[in-house]
Design a protein around this nucleic acid. Structure first.
Length: 906
RNA sequence: GGGGAAUUAGCUCAACUGGAAGAGCGCCGCCCUUGCACGGCGGAGGUUGCCGGUUCGACUCCGGUAUUCUCCA
């Protein structure tokens, strides 16, 4: 969202290069003794308390991973968690809010993350201070609040401030002069690209106004003349219009305010330091990096850039892992991996030779402790994740170095000094070896890299990838749902207490469009005002069942959520027709739902048992609760031992056998967490949450459960496996499914016992003994075969003939397969010392031939050449190496003829 | 979601255009030997991830599948 300070353009770099790399001694903060500089934490607190005093509620930062918003990878501004509030789809019980929001930005027009560290103010991770009005106050108050805070609370000198407004926003232009007393030349009118904000092509939008800090007041001119001299510190967005598809802007009935001020740059201004990285927010991190690499920040320009990169990236890394993101090869995890690898790469540039990023987690936690105490709690876990990923990357680099070394030898042998761009790309694309590292090595080893070829290959790959994007079959569905939502439709869920209910159809979607009626055979989405059907959420699959109306009935095959508070029933109309407005009776498939309940409660018990057995670091990383099975993914760095799995299963079953009632309470989030409920981190919860308790297992959960653990029946863990790096999966069955599985296993055991004629508990020993017996017998057979071959060879050796001074042994032998034939021929070859051996055999109706030539003769006779014509005789083909060849054919009757022809081949 | 790779002994990895599955480390046994990565000899350990196809013959080629790595979105 643009409701944020825009990150400075890289062009600033050239202008302020000098201040980017000041002499070491010059790094001190602004030395005004008259005015104690504010610490980052003090700025944050002052901001929140200031707005609290103006009637705002202080709200916690939401996690970096936005909930229920697939369009956004990460929270990138303060307003993200209030999106639905601004749209009027959610009520949080206050019209004024203020936050310090953790944000992450890795791409976008002004902030390619490759720039981070090279400029004074680019970050991937940063904090945004904001105040929000949801249809309450508007421009006048927003401006006067901001001005009061800037000039009276943090006391920035008025003469170094100026503002900008949207060129058509006369109202804001006037207000600044009136409220702040700014002369017109200090209020710049800027165009839409700078000062007009929109959430998307349609929807809420409006003008912005920004407060800027003059970096060099000795220069003449204002923002319009010299934009790069001014540092934007606060952006106020006035959500004023609603833009429709035609581009027409209608005024919103209750205009809103959304503001954002970057904490890091505000601190840099208040502390009088040249870059955000020099603020106290980074003190412990900078100190630790210097300690690790033994270099001094600010001394060497390249090293300083590397340290800044690491400063930034270790914050992103720590917070991302803390919000349950794991490094992976797709989506959010991939972004995390790239950030970490870039940091690791800069570590190498600083001369650090081993994993070090994980050591910075502690420093980040220390620097952010005041506002994010949870980092301390999760520290050991975060460190573990980071270290594992760093080690993985080092392995990747090693592999790449080896490949590069091989290729380097090759180009040197060819007398070239340019590394193929395609090879550099392959190294990068397939093995994750960074291009800049390849270039570095080239520089020291004396070869160039064809970067043009590299970029070409990258472009081809990019086009190929984006073309692969799946056609969005549900695109129309989103629009239809949106229309229903805007009509104020919502579905009340009754399924905690009921499995059937009367309801009214409020929407039917067919082929992505809203229709008024669905006829027999139609595949549709049916939306009702209330429903006992559980819509897939939190891993629990959607319910199935039937919807019956007076004129027809439909079979529900799945239920999904559709945006805020809406459920859609995927159904096929079996007969008759259903219409919007119809009163219907909705019935959930009870048996299926009961099995889901069992599996869901069992999932909680397993989760609890895992914590008991392998510790609190076993964080939930996903789950599936289906009628026939359950799956539970959790973070853990090694395979579980059989004993651990057995222990988890035992604990879970103990809880079942104790028949513990399951209690569900509605509580406030804070109250729930205080009472010890397990909340998933990285998850956003509403103010009121459901707490599901079954004995010692207490979790926040919106799913459906049994009423007593005894109803679950046996819990049987089927296996434990790996899903991704650092994530393990447990699969289990319960109730009837578990019983059937156990019955099956016992039946198999009984069958084995019967076949082996032993009692059930002796089966394992008996099978072991039998396997050993088989092994011994196989050995004995091999020994006997060899003996037989030897005696057969005694006869064959007499058949040696002399062909032009070369010994030739050509004969038909007895052999069961090609391997045996070859072994036999090898024995004969060793016996004759020098010569050619040609053996044929009938192996189960197939003709096999084998030709061996002793090494001293391979320059005159090649086994592969000799065998060709012979193979043709038996109707097949073959070949091999100079000293050994094999062939086969379908005609064993001609074996004698083939072997006889050998002499003529010499 | 789409592309590129990898999967061989307990571990790390070889095996050329399809033609006898190997090395180093580890393990077991024996010998030698009072010290640091001792040395020597011998041995066990393999359904080459799984399923299918092509071929006289597949670790090798083709298709599918699983897992891991990696790039792009």
């Amino acid at each position: 969202m643009a409701a944020t300070p825009q990150l400075l353009d890289t062009s600033l770099l050239s202008m302020y290069t000098d201040s980017l790399f000041p002499a070491p001694g010059a790094l001190g903060r602004r030395g005004d003794a008259s005015e104690a500089e504010m610490k980052g934490q003090e700025i944050r607190r002052a901001f929140l308390e200031f707005f609290e005093s103006k009637g705002h509620r202080i709200i916690k930062s939401s996690p970096l991973v936005p909930q229920g918003d697939p369009t956004l990878l990460f929270a990138n501004s303060g307003m993200v968690q209030f999106k639905n509030v601004f749209l009027g789809q959610e009520d949080i019980g206050t019209k004024r809010a203020t936050t310090s929001q953790k944000c992450l930005r890795v791409s976008g027009k002004h902030n390619d993350f490759e720039n981070v560290g090279r400029t004074p103010r680019h970050h991937t991770f940063f904090e945004m201070l904001g105040n929000f009005s949801f249809g309450d106050y508007f421009k006048q108050d927003a401006i006067s609040f901001a001005w009061e805070f800037v000039t009276e609370v943090i006391k920035l000198p008025k003469e170094r401030l100026c503002v900008s407004v949207y060129e058509e926003d006369d109202e804001a232009f006037e207000l600044w002069q009136k409220i702040a007393g700014l002369p017109p030349e200090k209020v710049a009118r800027l165009g839409a690209s700078e000062n007009f904000w929109a959430m998307g092509d349609t929807g809420p939008c409006g003008p912005c106004t920004e407060i800027h800090w003059d970096l060099d007041p000795t220069q003449p001119g204002g923002i319009e003349e010299d934009p790069e001299r001014f540092l934007e510190i606060w952006n106020l967005v006035f959500m004023q219009f609603d833009r429709d598809a035609s581009g027409e802007m209608k005024p919103l009935p209750a205009p809103s305010v959304d503001t954002g001020a970057g904490l890091e740059r505000m601190a840099s201004v208040l502390q009088g330091v040249p870059t955000n990285f020099d603020t106290d927010l980074f003190d412990p991190i900078r100190a630790r990096i210097q300690e690790i690499c033994g270099k001094t920040y600010g001394e060497d320009p390249d090293a300083t850039v590397s340290m800044r990169v690491i400063c930034d990236h270790c914050r992103s890394t720590t917070f991302l892992v803390g919000d349950a993101v794991l490094p992976s090869n797709a989506g959010r995890g991939y972004v995390l991996r790239r950030i970490m690898r870039r940091a690791a790469r800069h570590g190498v540039l600083l001369g650090i030779k081993e994993p070090f990023l994980y050591k910075l987690v502690e420093s980040v936690a220390e620097a952010m402790r005041d506002n994010y105490p949870e980092l301390d709690e999760r520290r050991s876990y975060i460190e573990k994740v980071v270290k594992v990923e760093e080690e993985r990357f080092l392995r990747t680099l090693e592999k790449g170095l080896k490949l590069l070394g091989d290729e380097q030898a090759r180009i040197k042998a060819d007398g070239k000094d340019v590394l193929d761009g395609a090879f550099a790309f392959k190294l990068y694309d397939t093995f994750g070896f960074p291009l800049d590292l390849t270039e570095d090595i080239g520089r020291s080893e004396g070869f160039a890299v064809d970067t043009e070829g590299f970029n070409k290959a990258l472009e081809i790959q990019r086009v190929k990838s984006s073309k692969g994007g799946k056609f969005d079959a549900e695109a129309g569905l989103g629009d239809a749902i949106g229309e229903l939502v805007s009509q104020g439709a919502s579905t009340k869920f009754l399924g905690y207490d009921a499995v059937e209910a009367d309801a009214e159809i409020i929407g039917i979607i067919k082929h992505g469009e809203l229709v008024s009626e669905a006829g027999s055979g139609d595949d549709v989405e049916i939306v009702t005002n209330r429903t006992p059907f559980y819509a897939e959420k939190g891993g629990q699959v959607g319910d199935t069942g039937t919807i019956n109306g007076a004129t027809g009935h439909a079979i529900v095959t799945d239920t999904q959520t559709a945006g805020e508070g809406l459920s859609r029933h995927h159904a096929k109309v079996a007969n008759g027709y259903l219409r919007v407005g119809d009163a219907v009776k909705m019935e959930v498939s009870v048996e299926r739902r009961d099995n889901i309940r069992k599996n869901h409660t069992a999932t909680h018990l397993i989760h609890y048992a895992l914590h008991r057995v392998i510790g609190e670091d076993a964080k939930q990383a996903g789950s599936l609760v289906a009628p026939d099975r359950l799956r539970f993914d959790f973070t853990h760095f090694s395979a579980m031992s059989d004993e651990e799995i057995a222990e988890v299963e035992r604990i879970a079953n103990d809880l079942v056998m104790n028949c513990i009632p399951v209690q569900t309470d509605l509580k406030s989030y804070d109250e729930a967490v205080k009472s010890g409920a397990m909340a998933l981190f990285g998850e956003k919860y509403g103010d009121e949450v459901r707490v599901v308790a079954c004995g010692p297992s207490v979790e926040l959960c919106g799913g459906t459960h049994v009423t007593n653990s005894g109803q679950i029946g046996p819990i049987l863990v089927l296996g434990e496996s790996s899903v991704a790096a650092g994530v393990r999966r447990i699969e289990a069955v319960t109730g009837p499914g578990a019983y059937a599985k156990m019955r099956e296993a016992l039946d198999a055991q009984h069958e084995l016992a019967r076949l082996y004629k032993v009692s059930g508990d002796e089966v394992v020993e008996r099978v072991k003994a039998t396997a050993e017996q088989v092994r011994q017998m196989e050995k004995e057979i091999a020994r006997l075969k060899e003996k037989m071959t030897e005696s057969a060879n005694k006869d064959l050796i007499d058949a040696v003939q002399d062909v032009g001074g070369v010994k030739l042994l050509a004969a038909v032998a007895q052999a069961s397969d090609a391997d045996a034939l070859r072994a036999q021929a090898a024995k004969l070859r060793d016996k004759i010392g020098s010569g050619v051996v040609v053996l044929g055999a009938d192996t189960g109706g197939k003709a096999m031939l084998c030709v061996l030539v002793t090494k001293d003769l391979t320059d005159r006779y090649q086994a592969g050449k000799i065998i060709g014509p012979l193979a043709k005789i038996v109707g097949g083909g073959g070949g091999g190496k100079p000293d050994m060849a094999q062939a086969g054919g379908p005609n064993p009757a001609k074996l004698q003829e083939a072997v006889g022809a050998a002499a003529s081949q010499l």
